[in-house]
Design a protein around this nucleic acid. Structure first.
Lengths: 210, 210, 210, 210
DNA sequence: AATGAATGAGGGTTCATTCAT
DNA sequence: TATGAATGAACCCTCATTCAT
């Protein structure tokens, strides 16, 4: 949005600039697409920049016109995934801060829906692709922080849950289950996955065992 | 046949062999130690076999007298970690199969103790080191299966938990929390971590919210 | 679809590609040349890919942009040699199938001429370079088969020669003599070499001694 | 024969020395045997010194107590092969120097018998095992010289054969045929092989075609 | 902006050989 | 004499990245 550098280029070169701009964007998108696919499938270090470029239908060198290096693409993709997920959580879970039970259910619903809609992003964020770079680790920490903030409903106070630990636990629970389920959804009915996620995160919120 | 040179060789080996055997074992151990340390810290593909050998104080080629390749060492270390963990679970949790609440607490206790005693093994199993090889994935699946088997207490039947999903969830919860906590235990008091793990895994077992 | 960035890329490749294509071909040829020379001189496993690349004036990695590995280059060169030789035999000897004596002479002539024109190829095919790879063995078997087919003139029937054995024998005779002579042609006058080869292969064809 | 260094050792250490001497000789023989087998099968550079030692039932280091290096063993084995062959030629062919036709037949007979009795030595001398080392090349040159000397019967003078070339040719013929036949003798009846070898080497001796 | 040939550092791995026991 | 663990040089090959066109 707003006046992008791209736009500025256009004003300098009139029509030709617009075409070039579109071409560049198309190439960028093609690289992102093939990168998302390949990186989700095989992981950062098992995929070469050549492979990504070639899957995108461009020459090897072109990759470096669009991304500083392989990790930069990975980073971009991971941030894309986080953004999509956080944006859904923001929209659907935030409003329910005062009703922990509903929030828990919707949160689980959002995670599952995300897995269904964006299998590649899930693999990228949580799967074995999320190695090495450290990028994914940052992303998950951010997710945990987000979660911790939203867990802090009044009810939590009564429970024996440690908010930070609980946030880590719930992130771990989610990521593992969602990744596992996205790999082959046939392993458990959607409802069961959903209900299990809700149940497990509710325990403490509902006021522990004591 | 009579006394062949071979026979003589054997008796010599018995003599001089002791020392060589010990030397070999020492080198093997040194390689395992430096491997465990480096692989836990940086992950499989960020560590070179040269680095492991050199950290163990031996020449590069020596590494390959003890392990077929880098992944073989990784595999050995991961299996060591799994064995230690499973053996603890077997000893302490198995006997409590009929008392889910106690089992949950002890299970959490075991996980935490494991993290405290074997930080490197935890990193190896669950941390970012656990990339690529697929070895760790297998290990975790095994852990989940183990868990699922031991979750099946009578009580589970009443809950809305899907056993397989719950097992995955609990493994995810554990691995994330334990890894996170082992990195810097100061982030939360031991008791809080323990209690949170217990609470979260108890919810369903105690018979879900509905 | 319209004019995609891909299309544009193609038209560019058409422009800038010419030069790159030529450069690539030149590099390929340089690698073949240095490879032919070095491999003929020292043999497959005594020559490193670095040496070939460096003799060709390119970086080590460049070698692998042009050949899958060292043996692939060797194979390519051996097949080149076989092709050149077979093509000469086809052209000059084939037409003489009905006149064994002439064929024998021309065959010897072709072998000698080949040795004179392509010393390196001879060394590659028959010399000590022709180790290990098994490639050369295949090539010689093919040559023997070729020879056997063309030996089967009517006259052969009368002789006590076993065609397959004779073909092997003649190939052995040729390869040894030609290799030996190519190493230092001063050791025997060309005519003597030629005449000896002709004489020795004619005996049986002319109808054995008995 | 004569006073060997071994014998000297014995006199120094009385009985114990004799046992050690026998042990050493047995080990040496075991290494030669496994070396002959493995080198004939796979060639010099495809066989490791470890493999030879291990096939001989001794430790890796022991190899170097008996041979300077791998090539020294190879050399020893090749010379063994040459010695066996030359000794046979000496015994059976020498006496027939004045009767070229008989000599030719017996020579062929000796070659074939050698191939039948010592397949491994043949492979070692002539086969693809005979790579790289240059050792085999020397051996064959010696064989050619031997042959040339014995070809120089009065008759040769009348023919158009160049003696050196003919010797090379016959060696090439032999080595190829004998190696080929030893690999799988079923490919041609023994008699045919023999007769073909005789016929081909007789031509010139009997007085060429012109 | 795109191309794609070239680069070259670096990693995994092998193996001939040594040497303390 | 035999052992066998250790050495370490050297090799093959990959691949992220550059740059002339």
């Amino acid at each position: 949005m707003g006046v992008s550098p791209r736009r500025k280029a256009k004003s300098q070169r009139a029509r030709g600039g617009r075409a070039a701009e579109r071409a560049r964007a198309a190439t960028h998108a093609a690289l992102r697409d093939s990168g998302r696919k390949l990186l989700a499938e095989r992981g950062l270090h098992a995929v070469t920049s050549h492979a990504i470029a070639s899957a995108a239908g461009v020459a090897a060198g072109t990759f470096y016109l669009h991304f500083r290096d392989k990790e930069a693409l990975f980073r971009e993709l991971v941030f894309e995934a986080v953004a999509v997920l956080e944006q859904r959580l923001e929209t659907h879970v935030r409003p329910l801060r005062e009703r922990p039970a509903d929030a828990a259910r919707v949160r689980a619903e959002v995670m599952l829906g995300f897995a269904e809609d964006h299998g590649e992003l899930v693999a990228l964020l949580f799967g074995r692709a999320a190695e090495a770079a450290g990028v994914a680790a940052d992303a998950l920490d951010r997710l945990a922080a987000h979660l911790e903030a939203n867990l802090c409903a009044p009810d939590t106070a009564k429970s024996t849950l440690h908010p930070t630990v609980a946030a880590q636990a719930i992130v771990g629970m989610w990521t593992r289950v969602v990744t596992w389920w996205a790999e082959s959804p046939g392993r458990a009915p959607r409802d069961a996955v959903l209900q299990t996620l809700v149940d497990l995160q509710l325990s403490g919120i509902r006021g522990g065992p004591k």
